[in-house]
Simulated scan of single mutants.
Amino acid sequence: MTAAPTLPAAPAGRPDHPHRPPRQLRWLLRLHRPAVLVWTAFVLVTGAALLWLGGPLTDASAAAWKEYNACAFAERCSYDQDAIVRYKDVYSYTTIALLAAPFLVAAWAGGSLTGRETESGTARLAWTQGVTPARWLAARLALPAVLVAVSTGLLVHLHRLAWTAGEGRIDTAKPWYDFATFYANGTVPVALALAGLCAGALEGLLLRRSLAALTTATVVLGGLWATVHTALPHLWPTVTRVSSLRDGPSGTGITTGEGVLTADGDRLTAPCSSGMIPGCRTELADLGAVNFYRDVHPVAHYWPLQLTASGVLLAVAALLVLAAFRVLRLRTAGPAGKGGPA
């Protein structure tokens, strides 16, 4: 009796191979290795500066301010002025670096992630190797989104720790409602960076020119942030603080409006800021003013404003992703067939 013939094993390199997505991610990391290294260096340097800021620099500056305040009105006072200036400078530089991070992401996404690949033909080559355009774009958005969200979130956390360490200890520390500090301490930079990633990817697909996409994505992100910044005070109901004419307007936080109240409850523009000034007292009396008022967001509104603004940015990012997939589908739905360029 003869043995039954043995069937040959099925080839392992088919287009639907289950290990294709990991290969795409490895190729993505290899293709954009310089950008990954630069971004890693940026995060490490900025993070180290923030740790330095929240530790030794804060302690040295707080000690210097304590010495300065102990001098009172003495003619000669000995304190470490360099420590105060150094803290202020490092705080400013790290805050600027953190707020610039979303623009770096947008520029890279437009200029390299999709712009350069569509311009050079690398994307078209991938589509001819069994990778569908939709999967190609999904791979280029998923991994960078995770890396950007985690690294930007880490920098935000370190910035908030550094700011908290100096709160109440350093006389020149920025208040929470200083807009640069407000943004750098919350979730807005993370959402803005993700929106920048999506805007850059869309511009790269639309323009198919790396330099043009880089520039346009940066401008679009700047316009988006300016819009959110303008709308931010109106994303959550304000609190009205009413004060006497003698005391003037009161209430600290993000101010959206102030003026005077009449006996009928009308709101009028305040001609001056205190009834203690003789000329001001006369002007307020002519208006029939009885109180000052100020519409303000107190510190309790910090996280509602942050989360609402971040939600708006994430919604915009989702729309940009949908638009990117739509543009890609239209560009690759030509007569060349599946995955072929139009």
Rank of each mutant, 00 (worst) to 15 (best):
G196P: 02
A191V: 03
V45C: 07
L25H: 04
R329C: 00
D82E: 13
V239D: 13
T215M: 09
L320N: 00
T238A: 15
F325R: 07
S151P: 05
L202F: 15
A231S: 05
P335K: 10
L161R: 10
D16K: 04
R116Y: 13
P133Q: 12
T40R: 02
P341R: 07
T2H: 09
G288F: 13
L314I: 14
K66V: 14
K88I: 03
G55D: 14
A142V: 14
F179R: 11
T181G: 01
F179K: 06
A263N: 06
A324E: 04
W27K: 05
T216H: 00
F73Q: 09
Y293Q: 03
R169Q: 10
V327K: 05
G311H: 05
L29G: 13
G54N: 03
T256V: 15
L268H: 01
T164V: 10
L158W: 12
A333C: 05
P189L: 11
L161P: 00
V290G: 01
F42D: 05
Q81H: 13
V43K: 10
Y183N: 10
G311E: 05
L141V: 12
L154E: 07
T181F: 06
A315N: 07
R329N: 05
L207M: 01
W236F: 03
H157S: 15
S210R: 04
G257F: 13
A123C: 05
P144K: 08
A101D: 13
H297W: 13
L50I: 07
A10G: 04
G275P: 08
Y93W: 15
R14W: 10
V260G: 00
V36G: 15
H297S: 08
A191G: 03
T308W: 12
D59A: 11
T230E: 12
D178W: 08
G130N: 12
S210K: 05
G259D: 06
A162M: 02
A107D: 06
A318H: 00
Y183T: 14
P237D: 02
P133R: 08
Y302Q: 06
V36C: 14
T230P: 05
T218K: 00
A165V: 09
L51V: 15
R326S: 10
M1Y: 12
G222M: 11
E258T: 07
V239L: 11
D171H: 15
D266H: 11
S250L: 10
V156C: 04
G337C: 02
R208C: 13
A64W: 12
E283Q: 15
T6E: 15
A226L: 13
G339W: 08
S120I: 07
A315K: 08
A60I: 07
A62C: 09
I254C: 03
